[in-house]
Design a protein around this nucleic acid. Structure first.
Length: 555
RNA sequence: UGGGCUGUAGCCAAGUGGAAAGGCAACGGACUUUGACUCCGUGAUACGCUGGUUCGAUCCCAGCCUGCCCAGCCA
């Protein structure tokens, strides 16, 4: 699939201006995930944005783990995120860890203390909260706010040396407890946490807070444009304050954009982790998860994800993209790439009464009629086949183009068949059809004697390979009444009980060579991916990536 | 009631002081050995509202309204 150029957006415009004005000769961006969960499609937006910008303007983009909170982070997450970024098609210019800068950050904090701009506070979490003030009223200064520089220096060193317990002391910036921006009311810079860090082990027991660490990380790396989401707009004054007051040479510019929301999609790491922890899904890579690994297992391609993200654009307004947009781009990508094949999800046996018994005929079929370069394949045909249960109706509505008693349809790549008899079981359910075929109507013969309105897919019965198909619907539904409650209870209440339907059917015998992550279009059904976790040589398991669109409507 | 941000068709989203790009969805129609694909056609007397400036405003100014974010020793 040809990938389009990034369309115009305000961040790109800022970069163009900065380059034209000479403010920068080149740009550096970064994707700065915290390794506390798996990357999801919201992160993919940030990844594509940052790396595309660097690529377009011949700059650099780094992958930097913002690992400043050992309590929540884990090596498993850094490994998965690296894999996901690479899978999405991007190579980082540098791999960095915020934890590698802990010493420098510590030294910069000392600069702050020496300038009288930071102090060690003995207030408890609760006391700090209470004295911070509210949105309406200003906060109160801590009684420890005016300790001497010498005392602060000594105390901060003791914090580092592990002489205090968790929560006993923090280092705070001395800014303005009366600021209308709550973020600026003496924010905490360092807290004590006697925890083992995945990268630095037990070397540190004080860890920098995001607001202090992030700007330093960007400044150290020479990041020119530091992209983050809207909720950090209030933090920008602090971001700038930190860079300025710690006397960093380089001043990055923070630019905020709206995070990605998609209809019927949960985009919260906390909630996704909850689904995993409570075993409500088959791991972080469950095909219903909006994680990059879930999308990968579902069968989405990096190309489709990238195109989707470029096409939805970047702005500062909160918005929710229709999930049909994502589906559109995977269909578009797979259209020319995915081999066509036939799969019967819910089989109904058909006996072609006028076809010789015991005979197997091999028919020619294009692998992908929309992409002739993909060549041809052979498929077997005989007296007994399976068709889709939905492709037969004893009493069809008008405009039903498929099989019904007396009606003739084409079997894709084969012959016209006409339905003569309907066999039912004692319960009155249709269990078999008796049809006749017309040898003159063979596919490719050029027969024009009659027209049929419908073409249906089928599988030769004796050589059919049984397979499992997993059909997906949204994991979580957008429900009006629930919108107002934001707690986890309502989120679980919105879980879709029908998010996965498993059916047993048949596929063409040549599918025996299908490998994990191979993608196919099952005729008239949609695009499917061979599940890498559950598919085996004995039993193929297909994940439906997305169905085909359909304009068929019953009146 | 403080601060920050936002508001262009059902959903995303460009754009300029001088007659509103594009994509998704939807709806017609053509084609069709996938009710798919493809192709053709159909959308904002108008850019949150009200005033103002201007020959002229979606774009400038003022006021108002809507939605979102902020009181973690999370990021």
């Amino acid at each position: 699939m040809e990938e389009k150029n990034s369309s115009s957006n305000f961040i790109r415009n800022i970069i163009i201006e900065d380059l034209e004005s000479g403010k920068h000769d080149s740009i550096i961006t970064r994707f700065p995930p915290e390794p506390n969960g798996y990357a999801h499609i919201g992160h993919a937006k940030s990844i594509v944005l940052n790396f595309d910008l660097a690529n377009e303007f011949k700059g650099a983009s780094n992958l930097r783990f913002d690992d400043t909170n050992p309590l929540k982070e884990d090596q498993e997450y850094v490994d998965s995120i690296k894999e996901d970024v690479a899978w999405l098609g991007y190579q980082w210019d540098n791999l960095f860890f915020a934890s590698d800068y802990f010493e420098e950050m510590y030294q910069r904090a000392i600069i702050l203390i020496k300038k009288g701009l930071a102090y060690v506070d003995d207030l408890s979490v609760e006391e700090i909260r209470q004295t911070r003030g509210t949105a309406q009223g200003e906060g109160k200064e801590s009684p420890y706010r005016n300790r001497s520089i010498e005392e602060n220096l000594a105390l901060f060193e003791k914090m580092r040396n592990g002489e205090f317990k968790d929560g006993e002391k923090v280092l705070r910036a001395k800014i303005d407890m009366a600021s209308p921006n709550i973020i600026m009311r003496d924010p905490v810079l360092y807290r004590i946490a006697h925890a083992t860090h995945h990268n630095t082990g037990d070397k540190w027991c004080i860890y920098p807070m995001y607001d202090y660490a992030h700007p330093l990380e960007d400044a150290i790396e020479g990041v020119t444009h530091s992209l983050c989401t809207l909720e950090f707009e209030d933090h920008r004054p602090l971001y700038d304050w930190v860079v300025r007051e710690t006397e960093m040479e380089h001043q990055p510019r923070q630019i905020e954009f709206a995070r990605l929301n998609i209809t019927n999609t949960v985009m919260s790491k906390r909630k996704l982790k909850q689904l995993v922890d409570e075993n409500r899904v088959d791991g972080w890579d469950d095909p219903r998860m909006p994680t990059v690994s879930g999308l990968r297992r579902r069968g989405y391609t990096p190309e489709a994800i990238r195109t989707f993200i470029r096409e939805i654009g970047v702005s500062k307004s909160n918005s929710t993209v229709d999930s049909q947009m994502l589906e559109h781009f995977i269909r578009e990508d797979l259209k020319l790439k995915a081999p066509r094949t036939m799969g019967v999800l819910k089989p109904l046996k058909v006996v072609i009464t006028n076809y010789p018994e015991g005979e197997i005929e091999w028919l020619d079929a294009e692998v992908n009629s929309e992409n002739p370069e993909m060549g041809m394949r052979k498929i077997p045909f005989s007296r007994e086949i399976y068709i889709e249960q939905d492709d037969f109706m004893e009493n069809p509505p008008s405009k039903y183009h498929r099989l019904f008693p007396g009606n003739e349809v084409r079997l894709k790549h084969a012959y016209f068949i006409q339905c003569n008899d309907v066999i039912k079981n004692d319960a009155g359910e249709v269990i078999e059809l008796h049809c006749t075929y017309d040898p003159e109507t063979k596919s490719g013969s050029g027969f024009t004697g009659r027209k049929v309105k419908g073409t249906i897919h089928w599988i030769e019965a004796t050589s059919a390979l049984s397979a499992e198909f997993r059909l997906y619907e949204p994991l979580v539904l957008d429900l009006e009444e629930e919108e107002l409650e934001g707690d986890s209870k309502s989120f679980l209440d919105r879980l879709n009980p029908d998010s996965m339907e498993v059916v047993e059917g048949f596929v063409e015998p040549n599918m025996k060579d299908a490998k994990p992550q191979d993608k196919f279009q099952f005729f008239r059904h949609g695009y499917f991916n061979v599940d890498p976790k559950h598919s085996t040589e004995e039993k193929l398991v297909f994940n439906r990536i997305v169905s085909l669109k359909s304009s068929f409507k019953v009146d």
